[in-house]
Amino acid sequence: MTQPSVAPQLSPQFCFSTTALRDFLRISRSAIDDSITQNLNALITPAKRGFDPSSTARRVPQPVSREIDSESCQNFKDKVLFPSWQSRSQVLSYCALVATSPDPDDPEAAIREAELEKNRDRVVDERLDPYSARFFPQEPRTERLALLLRQEQGVENIVRTRTWEVVKERCGESVETWEQALATWRKDRPV
């Protein structure tokens, strides 16, 4: 069975390292959500009854049931899918807190202040000088992180919705949305 994604050691440096943040999310999604069909197919054990030698006499295989037994599905959801989603949620929530907190360690803060002071008297008209954007100060890294997190949260919602549709179809799941299923899992989980 696939192993669930484990949240990395959370720190503001991890969040501001957008490469590390995106890599964690990308790898977690590819291991669990992007390959959900393969992960669910691995739960089916076609040789449970043993090998039937007459099965090789036919060229057309008999249709295989697409539904997986409920115990295997529940085990996969409880031990792999939901813990992976929980890890990604923790990372996104933590980094959202970092993005909304003051950033006294911003290495570009002094440079931005110097640029602002230097450019206070400059009149910028983009119609006359299309290169005038070079005079606009860079946005703080907390704003760049907040923008990245909004994008990644949107991707996360899309990925989870698609994954849950496959899980519903293959496992005969009755819960309509992934939000409801994850909330139930969190509630039933020992703290």
Results as ranks from 00 to 15, higher is better:
38 Q>T: 13
73 C>K: 06
2 T>H: 03
112 R>E: 03
33 D>G: 01
110 A>I: 11
81 L>C: 01
161 T>I: 09
3 Q>C: 03
96 A>Y: 06
111 I>D: 14
28 S>F: 02
13 Q>P: 02
52 D>P: 06
182 L>A: 09
166 V>A: 02
73 C>S: 07
46 P>E: 07
173 E>Y: 03
153 Q>E: 14
98 V>W: 05
32 I>H: 03
134 R>Q: 13
190 P>T: 12
7 A>L: 00
119 N>D: 12
113 E>P: 08
154 G>E: 15
111 I>V: 15
103 D>K: 01
107 P>H: 10
154 G>M: 13
126 E>R: 13
29 R>A: 02
102 P>T: 12
182 L>H: 06
59 R>H: 12
3 Q>I: 08
87 S>N: 01
53 P>Q: 02
13 Q>H: 07
76 F>R: 01
177 T>L: 04
65 S>V: 06
102 P>I: 05
49 R>N: 13
190 P>N: 12
118 K>H: 01
151 Q>M: 14
76 F>P: 00
156 E>W: 00
90 Q>E: 14
31 A>W: 03
37 T>C: 04
136 F>L: 10
150 R>M: 11
115 E>Y: 02
117 E>T: 02
104 P>L: 05
112 R>H: 06
101 S>R: 10
113 E>F: 04
113 E>I: 02
39 N>R: 06
62 Q>T: 14
3 Q>V: 09
182 L>G: 00
189 R>C: 11
44 I>L: 11
60 V>P: 07
23 D>E: 15
22 R>E: 14
116 L>H: 09
9 Q>A: 11
179 E>L: 11
97 L>F: 03
123 V>S: 05
169 E>D: 15
3 Q>G: 00
156 E>V: 00
124 V>I: 15
36 I>R: 03
64 V>L: 08
7 A>K: 01
165 E>A: 14
101 S>F: 05
136 F>A: 06
97 L>G: 05
11 S>Q: 13
144 R>I: 10
